[in-house]
Design a binder for these strands. Structure first.
Lengths: 111, 111
DNA sequence: CGCTAATATTAGCAATAGCTAATATTGAAG
DNA sequence: CTTCAATATTAGCTATTGCTAATATTAGCG
């Protein structure tokens, strides 16, 4: 499934924003999302599963808790896709910045 | 409408990829998308309208032709949203790269 | 004008996505 | 080994989305 299909949902985006700040238990995520979107625990759990299955998040058990963390690879795909548009808002990188940008791009698909 | 909602469709993404390489007439877009997705002119035109309405593309008339161009602002939104995850794949920018990255970020929301 | 080419619009249909309600699973603690 | 708390799963409903087919619009040209 394409990265953008996953990011097309506001609940999933919100969950990822939350995970961007650090690990969180399923319960934590439910609390926040429930407050902001007014949906059930079930709905949040389903979205967490979608994020897992799509490789945007990983889980580990901590007793009866499930601790979720963001998995950056799929988000890098989005960043890579944007490369083709960067020329529009970075019309001319000077030599130095170009080097850095190149280095950054090369480093991709390694980790 | 959120940028990601627009980018969640493969036809729309393909159209934007096409426009990233330069301006194209509606007909050009139809030809390419039709070949790759097998959908009608109508469907493509509807997607072009969605891209226009959402601010991802602009049009100008050239006789009976409509020439489409990519409008980068909405794509920058996506780039901005990704900022919160960049720390995951750029764990430590050296001083130089940091300067460049900062400059880049500051320049946003100006144009 | 009347015709044609290029494009846009509309109505209606079908597939999918995301939700709720109900239920299942799993681990810890008494 | 039962009970409770945390989380996941399933079935089924509904709203939305993207499509086709048909039709409308507009510009250029004879």
């Amino acid at each position: 499934m394409h990265a953008f299909d996953i990011l097309g949902d506001p609940v999933r985006r919100r969950i990822l924003e939350l995970l961007a700040t650090g690990e969180h238990s399923s319960g934590d995520v439910v609390t926040v999302v429930q407050r902001e979107f007014g949906i059930t625990q079930s709905a949040v759990s389903q979205q967490l599963r979608i994020l897992r299955d799509a490789g945007f998040a990983s889980v580990r058990a901590d007793g009866t808790r499930r601790i979720y963390a963001v998995e950056p690879a799929r988000l890098r795909e989005v960043d890579d896709w944007l490369d083709r548009f960067r020329a529009f808002w970075l019309p001319r990188l000077d030599a130095l910045a170009t080097e850095v940008a190149r280095g950054k791009r090369k480093r991709r698909h390694q980790t």
